[in-house]
Write a protein that binds this DNA or RNA. Structure first.
Length: 219
DNA sequence: ACCCAGGCGCATG
DNA sequence: CATGCGCATGGG
């Protein structure tokens, strides 16, 4: 399996995915000022094992209540925050995660992800992983989509894609290494590729035959 | 009525 | 290391 080859096949089938920055807009059309990087990080946390459509509703609610801001999140009560992100599921846990993330960002980087971006990739990843509520996939999503760092994201769909070629690994790190070792180190490519894999994964659920046929004759 | 979604933490062997 | 479980909503 040549993963760059697979990328081209997926891109031909699905086209560009426009994953982040997507900049959610308030439903009333009002202009709200918020940090796009922060929005991406919050979205990455909220989408843990959750459909993106449910996350969008939560993001809209946060925007409309002026809560898409680390200081605002820190200041509001856990129950108000939980109520706002209700649609994204696991709202008690996730409200705690948002508060922990926001507190950390304010304390160490003045609430500004652009400052955190100055950290080298490896150190930044380690720091994110040290936070309660942020695991490997969420950390890589934040690194790649919010900080534009070269960190390939592995998720359940990526593993299923590998399965099609009878490639399996024990750990997250090995999957990550598998892709990173044979792809050009490009943020744009990593960004698009992960989104394309998710698109393929959704097709696999809706139309398994087409999803498999798409990849057949590849190795 | 069931199954799953762009996981994670924690408790056990 | 590797399983198992709780967390929770909304759409198919």
């Amino acid at each position: 399996m040549n993963s760059l080859n697979i990328y081209h096949i997926l891109y031909s089938r699905f086209g560009p995915q426009y994953w982040w920055p997507s900049c959610a807009k308030a439903s009333d059309g009002t202009a709200h000022n918020f940090d796009a990087r922060f929005e991406i990080a919050i979205g990455a946390i909220l989408t843990q094992n959750t459909a993106w459509t449910n996350v969008e509703k939560a993001l809209y609610c946060l925007i409309e209540h002026n809560l898409l801001d680390p200081r605002a999140i820190l200041k509001t009560t856990p129950s108000k925050l939980a109520q706002c992100i209700r649609s994204s599921g696991y709202y008690t846990q996730k409200s705690k995660k948002l508060k922990i993330f926001s507190a950390w960002l304010i304390k160490n980087y003045s609430g500004d992800l652009l400052q955190f971006k100055k950290q080298p990739l490896k150190a930044a990843r380690k720091e994110l992983l040290s936070l309660w509520g942020i695991g490997e996939e969420t950390a890589d999503s934040i690194l790649l989509y919010a900080l534009e760092k070269q960190s390939f994201v592995i998720d359940a769909y990526t593993r299923r894609l590998c399965e099609q070629f009878n490639i399996t690994f024990k750990t997250y790190e090995k999957y990550k290494n598998f892709f990173e070792s044979q792809l050009p180190r490009s943020v744009k490519l990593y960004n698009e590729y992960h989104a394309l894999i998710v698109a393929w994964g959704k097709l696999l659920r809706i139309n398994p035959r087409e999803a498999r046929t798409l990849l057949s004759n590849q190795k």
